[in-house]
């Protein structure tokens, strides 16, 4: 029973058809939460006593930084699935996750730089968290670049999976070594183990926005995965029937 559920994921067609609905719901959830969290965060949440209004970029910066790291982890999981079970969909997931994750990572770096100017007086400092985020962006770029160097998509997928896995094992080491090297960044805004230091009127919209960005990432992921499925399976009959139906 459980294995049957697992085997369904081996069929790109099954995924393409099912994911349409998931993508639809993820998109709506993202939109509603995003409007709610952003309006609350930008207009209703109280002003920070130290940073004034500039802290409000937190409602963008923290969710995208969260996701940039979470998506790399997701990519490593997909890499294991690809290398162990040789599932085509995992390869497509790696490809989509690399692009979406890289976008979130760049967004986190840019929003952090914009936040850094009023808070620290400079766009960029060589601080631990900034640096490890930059390295993360390089790792994402490496995976995107490696894929583009191959003609054979299957070979490209597996090479990327190996690289993603090595990167994922190395990432904690990079993080700790960079942290040891220099620490200036304010500690994490939200931790799972502790109660946040800010009032509920500040962190509830942040939590809403984190959920919103997760849903948005799922939406983007499914959208690009479905496109990639169509492109990979362009010679399959069901795709050609789909195309003919649209014409």
């Amino acid at each position: 029973m459980a294995w049957q559920w697992f085997h369904q994921w081996g069929s790109p067609r099954w995924f393409y058809e099912r994911a349409e609905r998931w993508q639809f719901w993820a998109g709506w959830i993202a939109l509603v939460l995003l409007v709610l969290g952003t309006v609350w965060g930008l207009a209703i949440a109280p002003v920070d006593y130290q940073q004034g209004h500039s802290y409000r970029i937190i409602y963008l910066h923290v969710p995208v930084a969260f996701l940039a790291q979470a998506l790399y982890l997701g990519m490593a999981v997909a890499a294991v699935v690809l290398l162990v079970w040789r599932m085509k969909l995992a390869d497509i997931a790696i490809q989509a996750l690399a692009v979406v994750g890289c976008a979130f990572c760049v967004l986190a770096l840019v929003s952090g730089a914009i936040w850094g100017k009023p808070t620290w007086g400079t766009y960029w400092v060589w601080d631990a968290r900034l640096t490890s985020m930059l390295i993360l962006a390089f790792l994402y770029l490496g995976i995107i670049g490696l894929r583009s160097a191959f003609i054979d998509p299957e070979l490209a997928g597996k090479a990327c999976a190996i690289l993603a896995l090595v990167g994922a094992i190395n990432l904690p080491i990079i993080k700790y070594s960079v942290e040891w090297w220099n620490t200036l960044h304010q500690p994490a805004s939200l931790k799972l183990t502790e109660r946040p230091a800010m009032p509920a009127s500040m962190w509830v919209p942040l939590l809403l926005n984190i959920c919103a960005y997760y849903a948005a990432a799922v939406y983007l992921l499914f959208a690009s995965m479905r496109t990639l499925v169509l492109r990979r399976e362009r010679r399959a009959q069901w795709v050609q029937a789909l195309v003919r139906a649209h014409d």
Binding site: L146, I151, L163, N170
Partner: peptide, 26 residues
């Protein structure tokens, strides 16, 4: 990793450099 790649001249270097960070820092 770049054995089967067709355009690989500097790619391997770019891909590997971020992984050297801990060594360089230590």
């Amino acid at each position: 990793l770049t054995l089967g790649a067709t355009r690989s001249s500097v790619l391997g270097v770019l891909v590997m450099l971020p992984l050297f960070v801990p060594v360089v820092i230590l």
